[in-house]
Design a protein around this nucleic acid. Structure first.
Lengths: 245, 245
DNA sequence: TTGCTCCTCACGTCACGTGAGGTGGC
DNA sequence: TTGCTCCTCACGTCACGTGAGGTGGC
């Protein structure tokens, strides 16, 4: 044993892991202390410390412990590829997290606005976000978030206010059995189109949205929409777009 | 049983969880299907779907399943506080992740530059980052990252090149037993100060850095520094700053 | 002698995953 | 009759955490 060797406790303190973790790595065959004292105390030499750094680095790169063993023996581990993969995954996770935080902030604002008794709609909002995650790609969601963020508070308020007029009017039309491609529906649809100008909506996303709300109609609770109204309005908007004169 | 009720499989598909998860929530007393068929099949009604949304929302807010049960009964759950806390934590985690990704990218660039044989230094870089996480606050690390990112590639290259002159010169002075506050050390220190202008370095951070490298001198391997040289240079820089004439 | 560090089992954690063996529904 | 969905155990996972009971070192 050399003087610069570390005991488990020392190594743990200095490198920021627990003693139990070091024992665990040893049991998995990843890191054996290269020496022992008479009493059985582990002694970690400089090379062991390097091995620990490698283990922790690979862990940081997203590898499971059982996959790290083989790499510790390799003389030319595929570091660049491992790093590239991890960077890609981490950045995707980062965008996911940003989308999540953006939603949490919106819900938080609403929570403060409506008070604790009216929490039902908030849960629906969060459920809807979870569904978006499943139905839309991360890129589509990020686009939606950026568009939403670019709106600004007063524009959001105006949209919300206009909706309170638009939806009942559209609903009445539908109830009366009106043609979604007819002139009255068309007028409302044009207002809607104007209102949501700049929001992402290609054909694939539109269809995904409809399918999503068809699978989980309860997500529409509290929005003023019903599934039937959503479909009616979609047809009206499509008709208005196809015939912009 | 009503027609709009869901079986486990249906509920699982529509809400994006596994059947096993639903069973699990039931065993924990969080979500009981409000009905059963003759054959024992679970039937989930609309209220059950709402409860599931709540469970998943609370999970999204960072709560453990065992802490969710009490909240499901509450008529005015502390949503605003839960959301505020989760937002704060998520944002901190986000910054941590951004710092991590920035480091991974730097290491990746080096990995491509040096080739797979010279991987030792890369592991040391990653170990150093882990240590920074322990010794410095998240805010200090974010400051360091932003300063680093604002440098630009050519300035980084120039700093690197200057270091290759500065460090050996400083090392020679130290070996000769020169005074770190003396005129020769001072000249080199001034060049160093000029080189790192704009980088965050208050007194507390300086001391933390020294303590960190004292605790893990192996982190200096491959940087051209030794612990002694680091301390010598720090004294020289301090002397030059105190006496800027 | 006392407190601190170390040792080796070995069960616990958390939120489910994964069969195993069997039964209902279309 | 066949395939699909459902049922209830019950052990497994992953990276350790957490005592339990005992021994060395200063």
């Amino acid at each position: 044993m050399k003087d610069e060797d570390y005991t488990v406790g020392e190594l743990a303190r200095r490198s920021g892991v627990t003693v139990r973790a070091l024992h665990h790595y040893e049991k998995l065959g990843l890191l054996r202390a290269s020496g022992r004292s008479d009493a059985g105390y582990r002694h970690y030499a400089a090379a062991d410390v390097q091995t620990l750094h490698r283990i922790l680095a690979y862990q940081q790169m997203g590898l499971a412990l059982k996959d790290i063993g083989p790499l510790l023996g390799a003389d030319a581990p595929p570091l660049a590829e491992l790093l590239a993969r991890q960077i890609e995954q981490s950045e995707a996770e980062l965008r996911r997290q940003q989308n999540l935080v953006a939603m949490l902030k919106r819900v938080h604002e609403r929570a403060i606005a409506v008070g604790p008794e009216l929490s039902d709609h908030l849960f629906t909002l969060m459920a809807a976000r979870r569904s978006y995650e499943r139905w839309f790609s991360e890129e589509e969601i990020t686009r939606m978030r950026l568009a939403q963020e670019s709106l600004g508070a007063e524009r959001v308020a105006r949209i919300r206010a206009e909706y309170d007029h638009l939806l009942p009017a559209m609903h009445e039309l539908m109830e009366r059995g009106a043609d979604p491609a007819g002139p009255q529906a068309r007028a409302l649809a044009l207002r809607f189109i104007e209102l949501t100008r700049g929001m992402p909506d290609d054909d694939a996303m539109r269809r995904k949205g409809l399918a999503m709300f068809a699978a989980q109609p309860e997500l529409l609770k509290g929005t003023g929409f019903t599934l039937a109204l959503l479909k009616f309005m979609d047809r009206a908007v499509q008709a208005a777009k196809e015939n912009p004169a």
